[in-house]
Design a protein around this nucleic acid. Structure first.
Lengths: 339, 339
DNA sequence: ATCTTATTTGCATACGTATGCAAACGATGT
DNA sequence: ACATCGTTTGCATACGTATGCAAATAAGAT
């Protein structure tokens, strides 16, 4: 169509075929692993392709094969260091398997999530990873009907069609309870995450559960909503009170909030950590190991979670019939200076 | 082909057309904005489409239109809070314009970057954003020849075909020099970024330049490579020396390294900040405002950079002939407690 | 009622690739 | 020499959609 334009010209398999004096199918076969071509043919085609700078059009290929080799990733909370880490490793892991990642940022609004998943399906993604994002039943059904497997990363909702990869939030939280009780803390508080997330609920439940088993109970509780601002507010509500009513230990539902809490305790309320109050987080993000925070926390082994996610998803992409699994990886208490 | 499988069945425009008793073209028009269809037709088609759960196949559409509405994003350094922030905002901004982001993680290895860009081109992306990543001349040429515009985000390399959006690194660094000199610091050091990046070089040059203009010069310098470990090493080399040879001010080439430097100074060397040594960073990531660091730094106005990037890229996607521009946004010194 | 003009619709084809099928080819054995 | 078998190649078609073109229809003007 374009007459003299020198850029923007797409060179197709037909062009290569013409130049090499072979058929378009031959070109296709040379660029499709697992097909049989004679060495001579391969050489001729490669030469012509190199001269023209030909590369197969992945979109056209996807149209036929029905596989785009694209994985959709839903993510929010990127300000929490855990998720950039997860994103980086998921991306690398999928890249290594020949898949690419299409990223969608979503807020906590469920309506938005639904629209975004619909978008992903429109792009014919081969699978979906929802990192810390819930999927409505409606949209989950759409996915399975389209034959697109999905796995929830670090979030569970007990849906039978959805894979889940989480850490053993209850178990992790129980270890924190044990730590506090054993070290003699008496006014034990909890700053919880967003109540709409299973992760937040499980951590809170496991914590209280174990406190009860050890013969004590929660002294105070506030919701931090998994945001920094929320955590700052919660910390003030719990600790900006007369000395006697002040907790002497607090389990914060994730590291991101724990940093905020520590900042409030140290710089606003001038409290000594861990002498006057112990702080424990959850996730073990890299920053937790930095000396400024030196935060005791429960480690989610990110590598294992990523591995499980990738394996599950790719397995279900290969064999649609595979049942959805729920993997729950053990967490490990990392003792540092804050408790 | 498939006989009784209930999932994985793709419903196409033909199916909708058949059910609605119209032609496939009609269906296409109903789902293509800007085409003319009668209200009656629109209603019939919508009804059939809803009943079948039809959604247009974006890949097939792209094949025809030649536009995938996908933007390729190259990113590294996700452990530096600046980039998740940038990623989030770029993603949101492009989403708002109807584009999606295909993310590729790359290391600093140039060979890998080239392969990855080739991958992006294979996916027929409409444009490329390289965040803090350099593009070889070879691969830049390939992009322009394919008609795919690229913009370098927070990195410049003076290539005539590539857009660049950076902050005025020289100017920002000069402000830091002024701050140190004016506040009477006498042994002024610099911890630089990776020397392969223009950002690192410009910050170092601007800093030294201004020091010279103010009649002084650099007391010591070390390379931190833009990594935390690198910065830790650099801080030790510069500061783990007899008291008299110790710098009393240090400009660290970005915030991410500055946090590491502060940790070493405070917790390993027991130095008081800012009394014994001033520390200034660059970027103004959110963490810089947290009381634990309270870091004086140069703000890159991320929103403006993102806006410029999106505008430039979309403009060049619309009109291929537009010349590549180099935007250089002013930075602002944010005075906090560390200097 | 007829002619003109504007609008809506269907037909056919194109986008760039993969793949079943049959023809052509080469090698091997007798 | 021929028959047999395995390999390589080209032909034709399909994937799901957009779009130029012409036919059909509706609307408006005289």
């Amino acid at each position: 169509m374009s007459g003299g334009v020198t850029k923007g010209v797409r060179v197709t398999a037909h062009d290569v075929a013409k130049r090499a004096g072979v058929s378009q199918s031959a070109v296709s076969r040379v660029f499709t692993p697992g097909t049989s071509v004679s060495p001579l043919m391969a050489e001729k085609v490669q030469k012509a392709a190199d001269e023209l700078g030909y590369r197969p059009n992945v979109l056209a290929r996807s149209l036929i094969t029905g596989r785009s080799r694209i994985i959709g990733l839903l993510v929010s909370y990127l300000e929490n260091q855990f998720y950039p880490e997860a994103l980086a490793r998921l991306s690398k892991a999928f890249q290594a398997k020949g898949y690419r990642i299409l990223v969608f940022m979503v807020s906590r609004d469920e309506g938005e999530t639904d629209r975004v998943v619909q978008d992903l399906l429109d792009y014919q993604v081969d699978g979906i990873v929802a990192a810390s994002v819930g999927l409505s039943d409606d949209v989950a059904l759409k996915c399975t009907r389209s034959g697109v497997p999905a796995v929830l990363f670090n979030r569970g909702q007990g849906h039978p069609d959805l894979c889940e990869v989480t850490s053993d939030n209850r178990g992790g939280a129980r270890q924190v309870a044990d730590l506090f009780v054993t070290s003699g803390r008496e006014r034990i508080a909890h700053i919880s995450g967003w109540s709409g997330s299973s992760t937040a609920r499980e951590r809170a439940e496991g914590f209280k559960e174990r406190l009860a088993e050890r013969g004590t109970c929660l002294f105070a509780e506030a919701c931090g909503d998994f945001t920094r601002d929320g955590a700052v507010g919660a910390a003030r509500r719990l600790f900006n009170v007369p000395r006697g009513e002040r907790p002497d230990a607090v389990f914060v539902a994730n590291d991101h909030m724990a940093f905020a809490v520590m900042d409030v305790l140290r710089f606003e309320l001038k409290l000594q950590i861990p002498d006057e109050v112990s702080v424990v987080g959850y996730d073990d993000v890299p920053m937790a190991g930095w000396p400024s925070y030196n935060l005791t926390t429960v480690s989610q082994s990110l590598d294992d979670m990523v591995l499980a996610t990738v394996n599950q998803l790719l397995a279900r992409i290969k064999k649609e019939e595979l049942p959805a699994t729920h993997e729950r990886l053990a967490g490990r208490l990392i003792r540092r200076g804050s408790a």
